[in-house]
């Protein structure tokens, strides 16, 4: 299945809860303020390093760039996508759960 997270992990538990309920091999898309969870050098980096061992994790590039960063700030292993890529993830995974 696909999980989407659109909230900053510094503000909400959405990412925490997502990681708690996702199953190995699930896809997780970080978009909107959720992209802050994908960045290297934050206090969530070790959490995400662990998560990358279990899940396929994606980040929405237009949201990263809108927030003043380039993809080079995203942790290695997290895969960049655009909106067409988001659509592709929805095609490939069912159901879709939005961790708002």
């Amino acid at each position: 299945m696909l999980h989407t997270v659109n909230k900053s992990p510094f503000e909400r538990v959405s990412l925490d809860s997502c990681l708690r309920f996702a199953k190995p091999k699930d896809a997780i898309l970080l978009y909107e303020d959720g992209v802050y969870g994908a960045l290297a050098g934050t206090r969530f980096e070790s959490t995400m390093t662990e998560a990358l061992k279990k899940f396929r994790i994606y980040v929405m590039v237009p949201d990263v760039e809108a927030r003043g960063m380039k993809v080079d700030r995203v942790m290695a292993g997290i895969q960049p996508v655009d909106y067409a890529g988001f659509v592709g993830l929805v095609e490939e995974n069912c159901p879709v759960q939005a961790w708002l």
Partner: peptide
């Protein structure tokens, strides 16, 4: 941003 994201997703789909 929800409506913006929904629009971009819908358009891309």
């Amino acid at each position: 941003q929800a409506s913006d994201s929904a629009y971009q997703f819908t358009k891309a789909a």
